[in-house]
Amino acid sequence: MSSRTAYLFIKWMIPVAIVWGLSYPLTKLITVYSSPMIVSVVRVAIGSVFFILLGKGLSLGVKQFINGLFNFVGLLTFLNLGVYFSSNPGLVAVMIYTQPLFILIIEMIMGTKVKMRGIIGIILGVIGVTASAFLSFNLGLLFGLLGGVIWAIGTV
Rank of each mutant, 00 (worst) to 15 (best):
K63V: 02
N71H: 12
S40P: 00
L54Q: 03
A45W: 06
K56M: 07
L58T: 13
G74Y: 09
K56L: 01
F50W: 12
R43I: 02
K63R: 04
K63L: 03
G61F: 00
V41S: 11
V62E: 00
R43V: 04
I52K: 02
S59C: 00
F50P: 03
L58K: 03
I66W: 01
G74R: 07
S48A: 13
L75W: 15
F65Q: 03
L58C: 11
I46Q: 09
V41A: 13
F50T: 15
I66S: 08
G57W: 10
N71A: 09
G57L: 11
R43T: 02
F50Q: 08
F65P: 08
K56N: 11
I66Q: 08
F50L: 15
G74D: 15
V49T: 10
R43A: 02
F70H: 09
S59A: 05
G47I: 04
V49I: 15
G57D: 06
N71Q: 13
L54D: 07
F65A: 12
Q64N: 13
V42W: 04
V44C: 08
S40T: 07
N71K: 09
V44R: 03
G57V: 01
G61D: 02
F51A: 06
V62S: 01
V42Q: 12
V41G: 09
F65G: 08
K56C: 06
S59P: 00
V62H: 01
L58I: 15
V41W: 04
I46P: 14
L53A: 12
S48K: 02
F70K: 11
G61C: 01
Q64T: 11
S59M: 01
V62Y: 01
Q64E: 13
G74F: 04
F65T: 12
L60M: 05
F65W: 00
G55M: 14
V42F: 07
L58V: 12
L69I: 08
S40D: 06
L54A: 10
I46K: 06
F65E: 04
I46C: 12
S59E: 05
S40G: 02
N67G: 12
F50G: 03
K56Q: 10
V44M: 14
F51S: 06
I66K: 11
F51R: 02
G55I: 13
F72H: 07
S40F: 04
F50C: 09
G55C: 07
F70I: 11
V44G: 08
G61T: 11
N71I: 12
V44P: 10
G68H: 10
I66P: 04
G61K: 01
V73M: 15
N71V: 14
I46A: 10
R43S: 02
N71D: 03
S48I: 09
G57A: 05
F70D: 14
N67W: 05
G74T: 15
V49D: 01
G68Q: 11
V73G: 05
I52S: 12
L58R: 03
L75G: 00
L60P: 00
V62K: 04
F50M: 14
L69G: 15
I66E: 05
I46Y: 04
A45I: 13
R43G: 02
L60D: 00
R43H: 10
L54T: 13
